[in-house]
Nucleic acid binder design. Structure first.
Lengths: 232, 232
DNA sequence: GTTGCCAACATTGTCGACAATCATGGCGAC
DNA sequence: GTCGCCATGATTGTCGACAATGTTGGCAAC
């Protein structure tokens, strides 16, 4: 049997911790090296990754809790399959949670946070003008993370990161079609405007509208080939 | 050293699986037998619960992901402490998620679901008249669970159960003060009415108002002695 | 040809032993 | 008397071996 981790088993000599292994497997799932429903055998992974079964087992335990793997008793674990329905569910849930976060951010925003948000919006506008989609996508991630920091809502942050880790099962390709960038920027501007104005209702509403818009785009592009939850 | 699980180590001969052990520890935390910040030693638990360290370790891995335990590298795990701030966060997050769930329930409700919800409301009214607080509290749990089933939203259900498992850290005492039961019933009636009318906006709004009301009650009663997230 | 049983195999679950790491307390130097 | 170092002990992290379990394939009976 060929190794499961083709080129991924780099530096076979180095020992790795359980969380390293878990991250490794997560990437393998994200990149498609591990197919949905594929079975993972503890002994094989231990050999391929130059470690032992205990480490693999604890890594599995973590990934199992993050719903990336499913365990069948006495039969080991499989890569969890995802459905289009589930993609929609994840986006709906993100909308609810990010709405809450935006609301908290609007409540707590201060001068420093306002400067940070306005700075990112400024850079986004530059990207729109230069047409740099990749940079825009990164700014997008940064904007959402900044809102999370301003909100300072540990519980929501944790749940959102859990959703994010499930989203690795989608291929990350940029969803930014021509035209979408302008719409996305407009939505982001509305969100920031509401937050800096301490307008909690508008903050939640615009954030939810934004993620709803992303969902529409994803579904329109994706169909069965669901791509890119990343660029929100 | 005395055993950590006083009377809890019932039937010391029976072997338990990792998930049994995890449930055991969860109860111990909920009941207060394990104090916040208390350190858990793998060897001791393995002895007290008549099992071995491997089982304890996998149980720890699960509880750690549920944020009931925190691990310090090479120092083992502790019972996670919770703060009043976190209690508020959990309620806020529940409100956001249950609002989403209520919305989905309003979208999908059918004749069978309507009968179930109306049945529960009927029983609740009987409890109000008879003053049976305990039965009311159980109906309350059943109502929320039924709404979850109608909504059929796996992702939100999972996140909510994760929040619930964190809430075990609060003492379960009934929060139903005299007078609160009438208010609670009114809120539940409004939620059910919105759901069966397929009114998604109202469903979300009333559910969020309801949980907000619970939060107020909990905070008013609790203060530092936060009790009873259960009776919502 | 089909069905049912049995044996061999593959894989997970369990367990104890050893190694690595961190905290604690004593001892001596200053 | 206080500070810093070192030895000791306690606990987690790692590892390999064995037991339990489920699966697969072959063989025989019908």
């Amino acid at each position: 049997m060929a190794t499961i981790f083709h080129g991924l088993a780099d530096d076979p000599a180095r020992a790795r911790s359980a969380s390293d292994i878990a991250e490794h497997i997560r990437r393998a799932i994200a990149s498609g090296d591990l197919a949905p429903n594929e079975r993972l055998v503890e002994q094989d992974l231990a050999r391929d990754l130059n470690t032992n079964r205990s480490v693999i087992r604890t890594a599995f335990a973590h990934l199992e809790q993050q719903r990336l793997l499913v365990r069948e008793p006495n039969r080991g674990v499989r890569v969890r399959t995802y459905t289009a329905l589930e993609a929609v569910e994840i986006l709906e849930t993100r909308a609810a949670l990010e709405g809450l976060v935006a609301r908290c951010a609007a409540k707590r925003i201060d001068g420093e946070g306002e400067r940070a948000l306005r700075g990112i919006i400024g850079e986004m506008r530059a990207c729109r003008d230069s047409g740099d989609l990749l940079a825009y996508s990164q700014l997008n991630t940064r904007l959402h993370r900044t809102v999370l920091e301003i909100a300072n809502h540990e519980t929501a942050t944790m749940l959102l990161s859990s959703l994010q880790s499930q989203a690795v099962r989608y291929q990350f390709r940029t969803v930014l079609q021509p035209g979408r960038i302008a719409q996305s920027l407009g939505e982001h501007e509305a969100i920031v405007q509401a937050i800096v104005a301490h307008n909690e209702d508008d903050a939640e509403r615009t954030m939810r509208a934004h993620i709803g818009s992303v969902a529409q785009t994803v579904l329109a592009i994706g169909g069965k080939d669901l791509t890119a939850l990343k660029a929100i």
